[in-house]
Design a protein around this nucleic acid. Sequence first.
DNA 1: TTGAAAGCGTTACCAT
DNA 2: ATGGTAACGCTTTCAA
Lengths: 350, 350
Amino acid sequence: MVVTMQDVARRAGVALSTVSAALTGARPVSVATRARVQAAAADLGYRPNALARGLASRRSHVLALTHPVGAAGLSRTSAEFVMGAAGAAQERGYQLVLWPFAADDAEGLVDVARQGLADGVIVMEVHAGDERVRRLRDAGVPVALIGRTDVPADADLPTVDIDFAATLAGAVDHLADLGHRRVAFVNHAAHRVAEGHGPTVRAAAAFAAATAARGLAGVQVCAEESVAGGRAALTGLLDGPGPAPTAVITMNEDATFGVVAELAARRLAVPGALSVLAVVSSPAVAGQTVPPLTTMHAPGDRLGRSAVDALLTLLDTGAAPPAELVPCALVDSGSTGPAPAARLAAAGTP
Amino acid sequence: MVVTMQDVARRAGVALSTVSAALTGARPVSVATRARVQAAAADLGYRPNALARGLASRRSHVLALTHPVGAAGLSRTSAEFVMGAAGAAQERGYQLVLWPFAADDAEGLVDVARQGLADGVIVMEVHAGDERVRRLRDAGVPVALIGRTDVPADADLPTVDIDFAATLAGAVDHLADLGHRRVAFVNHAAHRVAEGHGPTVRAAAAFAAATAARGLAGVQVCAEESVAGGRAALTGLLDGPGPAPTAVITMNEDATFGVVAELAARRLAVPGALSVLAVVSSPAVAGQTVPPLTTMHAPGDRLGRSAVDALLTLLDTGAAPPAELVPCALVDSGSTGPAPAARLAAAGTP
DNA sequence: TTGAAAGCGTTACCAT
DNA sequence: ATGGTAACGCTTTCAA
């Protein structure tokens, strides 16, 4: 039924082991022999069996990717990451399997990992005390992280992540350069901070640092991950006690749509009355609003690829490459503009 | 290093083959023996090796999913499909590998498929003369389809698809029941029809049939897959020669945002002036607009799961189950409403 | 009911 | 440079 290496060997008139050598280059083979083997393989339409190869070589050439499943489904940004990883794996001669597990199902994850189908695991959306990472590491499973834990021992695992410091600094700089002095930041929900959700925590610190560095008045609010959450957040910012901001940075994608909705409801012009900048987002998503939003595009594809490369480096050399932090890139779609100097003063007066 | 079945056998004091039988139930094993084996396995933390099992049993318990890669990335709807398939596979004791290939790279696809890592392949976004399907079938690879080809021989492959007829009929009924008499349909780009893109072609026919059945004036337009394409399409509908529609059904997700944008630009109320219904979409996406759009939610999760089940049925029984067609479900978010009788007459007068 | 042994299709090592 | 053969860790006959 299937063509095996033995079949190729017979047709080429050589030993089985020679076919293996000729095809993989594992040991020197004469030019003539190699040609005969390749011709025989081509004639027969031979394809090496991945399972047998993996079993014999202890290298399945399969990488796993685990993404916490939730009601929310896969966001566009996460999807870019997954596809980036799948593409990179493909190009490196690997295949990528998807392991959908709940974030707290470290048990199930380790169970599958120990079946040995995958040579290593890429863990997405890593958080502070992530048990998945701890258990996988304890089980001796090669792991690469998207994000970081707060465990010192995890520091030498291969890691890639968004450079939140540079991203928020870039966002603040962009707005400061446009003359904005009061900038707000709509972060993820408050409970995320308590959970040690990396992006939330690091972005918060980065925003504070960036506004301080530029001498701006920066105010942060947490918003539920929903349109309603975003509307509430903006309402608080505009009608609250302090002076209203002239620009708002959003990182919470669902809330971003709420911010836009609230602005539309109030008939506030963007960027005339308020500049809006969506960070850690995707132009494909931010282009859906009216007006389209200026974005700092999350490097999903790039990080997915880097995670694969980092994991393969660990597998090949036994050592993890240095952590790779990539900032989001600014994509100007026109929702940010000069600060409205006049309105600024007016808004400052209750 | 790793615990093998032999280790378990030694500890339980039985033969290797007995361990296999006790664990898999492949043959009757005495209760006492099974208990000893299970205890030994638990003590040692034994996990069967997926590669070895697959090689010996000719069943890898791996399913592949191929999604055409393109510049657009993975849409939310497609992502739901992928996650549904991954979840179902997981629950059935299978793993899902991602095979990102360009739609015209049937060659590469077959190459990977013939490596035997996967027991079968699920092909997404199947189109009329899909070469991927033909080549995989010719190579003897078990295949399940999302969508359909126009090849009679493919008719007995396991198939799941959106029920476009029922979906469009449901959409038209919903609007007709609200009193609308002139309904427009914004379909995918014109070149999709030429390519034999299933959803485009079937939805077009279904819309025509549904409007005819209800005695409505139905007009169809093709729109480029972009915000600009959607704006242009709506402009054509409102400013064109014929009477303007009072409701529009959109299936082209990118264009949908353009339709919404154009409505906003014209300050036309939704659904006061025009009802909008986004079919084959997702509430997660349609909830991002202002106002949120009433949707007919594509059954991505359900179809992903069904595709896995259909493929497993083929693998287990040798025969494909009957094709499964699932309509999109209406999720009313308020963007459809009664037809504006007054404006209707006015709009009819150039 | 259980044990022994022959594969599954490769890689890797040891001779030659 | 090449051939033979023992793993790899399991499933599956075939005997007992």
